[in-house]
Design a protein around this nucleic acid. Structure first.
Lengths: 126, 126
DNA sequence: GTTTATGTATTACGTTTGTAATCGATGGGC
DNA sequence: GCCCATCGATTACAAACGTAATACATAAAC
């Protein structure tokens, strides 16, 4: 799968939230958040199809688009490559940076604690 | 500051580890890890200077390059934009994704626990 | 049935990026 | 003092990207 560009990602996000969707539905979904021209959005959809990240089926004259690439897969792969590139593969320093700059909220901490607890539960036989 | 490309980042990393450095020192530092031609590295150095991420001072005929953009600043900004873009701004789901796919090591957990403890210590008056 | 509007496909075009080669200046060797 | 090796600066060029406009096909309107 070719890399998804940032603009393409915005289009993909719409499809992750609502699919299948026509090109016009995607355009409308993006209308408030972005200033993109309809033609631009359609180009992006096309590129996503070319890259294999999105598929479509014909519905009369229009197409119905659906994501092939799943959000969780995308997130995992991008996270890994990001953390590798920027933090040499270690995740804690990323979180530490957020902590230092007061970018962590109570809720983040709660969620982190919970998933650590779960991790320890599942790995307690080590 | 213009965006730093992935190739440029590799050059910056060298300077973060060792600066000031001559172009040739950077080339050599990258020689094992990459297949980049000397000219390529020098182009990247130049682009980093143009982007304001790196400065230099003349040392005879050669230049001595130093990072202007600090690694921690870069990391924080990139982390924020990455998490915003890919996880709608919430950090815990990123860590959760790692946990689910067994990408977390004992050490990561230990570090996370420690920084959570520190965070709670500093925020206990809430 | 013919025109028109609307969908997708194709083409466009400037910028950024990856990956260098060439140019021009200048310090070092002789 | 002149030539050459070696700097950085400039230029190159294809692919990807952002951002559309134009072309082509066909369903809808009449």
């Amino acid at each position: 799968m070719k890399d998804i560009s940032q603009a393409e990602l915005e289009v993909l996000k719409v499809l992750w939230q609502q699919s299948p969707a026509t090109a016009n539905q995607v355009v409308e979904a993006l209308a408030d958040a972005s200033q993109w021209h309809e033609k631009t959005v359609k180009t992006l959809l096309n590129r996503l199809v070319t890259k294999g990240a999105v598929s479509f089926e014909k519905d009369g004259r229009a197409y119905l688009y659906s994501p092939v690439l799943q959000q969780s897969d995308y997130q995992l792969k991008e996270s890994q490559s990001f953390i590798q590139r920027v933090f040499s593969g270690r995740i804690a320093p990323l979180v530490a940076g957020f902590a230092q700059h007061d970018k962590l909220a109570e809720q983040d901490i709660a969620e982190l604690k919970q998933l650590i607890a779960r991790w320890e539960q599942e790995n307690k036989n080590d």
